[in-house]
Nucleic acid binder design. Structure first.
Lengths: 149, 149
DNA sequence: ATAATATAGTTGACGTCATCAACTATATTA
DNA sequence: TAATATAGTTGATGACGTCAACTATATTAT
């Protein structure tokens, strides 16, 4: 067992808490919850996506996904349209207002990250960027997580 | 604006989602929610802590903290005791069962992180560890996060 | 000493949210 | 064309955190 591993786990957890639902004094993303923000981001990145896909991507049931889209639609950030290809499918797209709120949110967070990293040298920032990239890639390989207890 | 910053933000968010409430198929920590796990960890690290402190540390109201402790107590992982120093204060301590579940959870996650990092070289792991440590320290300096929209 | 105030914690009512199971509507297959 | 499969929605439900009001203990002022 690599000695550094437990430290890495702890750091990851600490950071995740800060960037998760309870960080930033619970003030996540304007009038969006973290979940809504993530859904909106997913929709934006795919341009048009069936509701179920959103649920799968974010680990919600399809009814959960329906409810998330309900909220985003009420707030005016997305639109439902019936798919021209398959009448059962409900393509969700982002409205201009949705695009706008997203860019504002991303701007705030980016600003925050920049403040956080203010005192680091460019090569340190480079190193941090590389490390996080490696981690993300490693995580996306979807190693099984044994959740039995 | 450093060019790397938006990437860093994205990576952080990606990792946070994975390590947050919805990652790992929602299978966080045995019979503990992420919030309960974080509270238990906090209690363990301080040995004995007033309920309100837990709320402050994790960004909950004091009644929210009360409810979290209720759940942990029902599950047998913590105990409430009146403080000998101040009768208003309710010192929370971890039971042996609490210690046990914590070490199991940490073991699982550490194992997971190890699997994730399996293919990296020791110096890469070292670099990742250092980067995360820098990030955690930077975050803990508690820069203000502008949450206005 | 005692009355007034402050603080820690609890509780009932409430709103939010995700899930389950049942349902509708459309598509595919036999 | 009948049977089955799939996408999405909905009502009922349970988990959870907050607010405001409350209890109990401690501190401060007179």
């Amino acid at each position: 067992m690599e000695k550094r591993i437990p430290d890495i786990y702890n750091s990851l957890q600490e950071l995740s808490w800060q960037f998760g639902d309870h960080g930033f004094n619970g003030e996540c993303c304007g009038d969006l919850s973290l979940v809504e923000y993530m859904a909106l981001k997913k929709i934006l990145n795919t341009r048009s996506i069936p509701i179920q896909e959103i649920g799968i991507a974010l680990n919600f049931t399809k009814s959960g996904a329906t409810r998330i889209i309900d909220r985003l639609e009420q707030k005016g950030y997305v639109l439902r349209e019936q798919s021209p290809v398959d009448g059962r499918v409900c393509c969700v797209t982002v409205t201009p207002r949705g695009v706008e709120i997203m860019s504002k949110i991303i701007e705030k967070y980016t600003k925050y990250v920049q403040d956080i990293l203010e005192e680091f040298k460019p090569e340190q920032i480079e190193q941090i960027g590389n490390s996080l990239e490696m981690l993300v890639k490693a995580v996306q390989k979807n190693k099984p997580f044994d959740s039995s207890f």
